[in-house]
Design a protein around this nucleic acid. Structure first.
Length: 494
RNA sequence: GCCCCCAUUGUCUAGCGGCCUAGGACGUGGCCCUCUCAAGGCCAAAACACGGGUUCGAGUCCCGUUGGGGGCACCA
């Protein structure tokens, strides 16, 4: 704890090509945590160099998502910062400059191969069961010749000139040293024929220029770490600490979530997309706690963490490199745990939009009163609609048979209701401490079980077989409406 | 086909050579509490993939096998 830490400059660098999912959320979280923990800087960088896959709404969703999670960034789109711009689409010239520098220093070359040629090469390699790689056609074209062809209008890309021999050792903070033979590495394209840099170049350039100290990203990047390190070393830049996070697997642990499985999860009220999670009634505290623990742990028993706890306790030294299967039931658990932890006011405010979306007219005051009896019963905020909707309706409706308690006849139930009505009518107030005692006496006299009597009463008053505690509920509903509903129930049994 | 990574109960994980007859949590089963549903309490079943080494001693280190995952684009 007394360990001195240098302020980290870290970045979350998503591409705006789709919905923000759990994997991204965790990557963003971990980046945020070490930034805050070290008094460093959390940067948002949009990697939008692929104009073909660009989705205009995606950037907004991304920003909304990380803000919802509570991860505010220090530098990035909409925030500025001295290392901007923070959208790669606004940095094209920078990449071109560095790419040319690589050509100049002999670490890269111009390539004029057509896509058709490349496809054919791949096809042949595939047929021969060889590894797939560029065939090197343009590798040895003298730079002066290449420049002439470019001047003459030929289309070209810039490729990295990967050494043919030797090996490179890279370091991943979770896995240690990884050594690969250069000959299995490819002459990857750095700049496309449309002039846009590819990830491999753009990200390395930006990380350097933005003075990134720790690169925390998904493990799908691990195979290209050797290439990235070659690029970094070709420039002679300092090497950031690389941390490749394991991927999330589908609940069965067999592979990633497919489109189909994602849709099926949604039917169950679960999703891997941040925006869905919000709509489904998950709270950021729960999502953060849950995702933080998929791949990281504090000790052998502590599991409840607020964002602030995580800022204090997170450590990149306790990361787990193995892939983790998503466990939605555990998300439900963490979500419920955090909901229970909310103050009454907080819960009231968070639950209100869900009731309103369901068409109920609500008031914060009433919700604050309700909060204590609701808290324990809400796996998600959305559950408030089923659990507490009856507090906000004028007319409740339910099938008459719900009024007939197990083991009782219709007439017996009707009689009980009549007695309940009498008792409630006779007392001044239906507050719990006033109403409960006479009701218990009724149970005693009737010879039926508390479960039977209160069950009938519950349906009559709430219209539901499942509800928050009866007497507390009646108190909130108010005497007039309670009596009225019981009368309705009696009529229903006629 | 080639390359890389990973490997403790169903799932998330603790474990960094002796504190392990392997700990916690979710889930599951049972009991208690109880006006329903929850919440809470108690209890139970459930794991070191396999085979070789190294060591006085291995879940922990090394090698192999198997299994799983990821990557091999003018995507990120």
């Amino acid at each position: 704890m007394t360990e001195l830490k240098q302020p980290a400059r870290v970045r979350f660098a998503p591409s705006p090509t789709g919905h923000m999912h759990l994997g991204s959320a965790r990557t963003a979280l971990y980046n945020y945590l070490i930034a805050r923990q070290t008094g460093g800087t959390f940067i948002l960088r949009i990697e939008d160099t692929d104009t073909k896959r660009y989705i205009p709404e995606a950037e907004d969703e991304l920003i909304k998502g990380i803000k919802w999670l509570g991860l505010d960034y220090d530098e990035g789109p909409g925030k500025g910062g001295q290392y901007g711009p923070y959208r790669q689409s606004e940095r094209k010239d920078i990449y071109t400059k560095f790419a040319e520098q690589l050509v100049e220093s002999g670490h890269a070359y111009y390539c004029f191969c057509s896509p058709e040629h490349l496809a054919k090469v791949r096809e042949v390699q595939q047929a021969n069961k060889e590894s797939l790689h560029y065939d090197g056609t343009c590798r040895e074209i003298p730079v002066e010749d290449a420049r002439k062809r470019i001047a003459a209008g030929e289309r070209y890309v810039i490729r990295f000139k990967m050494p043919k021999t030797g090996s490179i050792t890279v370091h991943d903070h979770l896995r240690g040293d990884i050594t690969v033979e250069n000959k299995v590495l490819d002459d990857s394209v750095l700049v496309k024929s449309d002039g846009w840099a590819l990830y491999h170049l753009a990200a390395m350039v930006d990380d350097y220029l933005m003075k990134i100290t720790h690169v925390i990203r998904g493990s799908e990047w691990l195979p290209s770490l050797p290439l990235h390190m070659h690029i970094i070393r070709a420039f002679g830049w300092p090497e950031p600490t690389f941390i490749h996070l394991s991927v999330f697997l589908k609940p069965s642990g067999k592979g990633k979530m497919s489109k189909r499985e994602t849709a099926d999860a949604m039917k169950d009220g679960h999703s891997i997309f941040v925006k869905d999670l919000e709509e489904l009634g998950y709270v950021p505290e729960g999502v953060v706690n849950w995702t933080a623990l998929m791949g990281w742990s504090y000790d052998d028993h502590t599991e409840f963490f607020s964002l602030q706890d995580l800022v204090e306790k997170f450590s990149i030294d306790h990361l787990n490199p193995s892939p983790a299967a998503i466990n939605f039931t555990k998300l439900d658990y963490f979500n419920a745990l955090h909901i229970r932890n909310f103050s009454d006011e907080d819960l009231a405010n968070r639950v209100k939009p869900f009731l309103e979306a369901a068409g109920y007219k609500t008031s914060i005051d009433k919700l604050i009163i309700l909060a204590p009896i609701l808290k324990e019963r809400l796996p998600t905020l959305d559950d408030v609609v089923d659990m507490a909707g009856f507090f906000f309706k004028n007319d409740i409706s339910y099938p008459a048979e719900d009024l007939i308690a197990k083991g009782l006849e219709k007439t017996q139930c009707r009689q009980i209701l009549t007695q309940i009505l009498e008792i409630l009518n006779g007392i001044g107030d239906i507050k719990k401490d006033i109403a409960e005692e006479p009701m218990r006496e009724l149970v005693e006299k009737s010879g039926f079980s508390a479960g039977q009597v209160f069950g009938i009463m519950r349906v009559a008053v709430t219209g539901q077989k499942v509800s928050p505690p009866l007497f507390e509920s009646m108190e909130v509903i108010g005497k007039d409406i309670v009596l009225n509903r019981i009368q309705q129930a009696i009529k229903l049994l006629d």
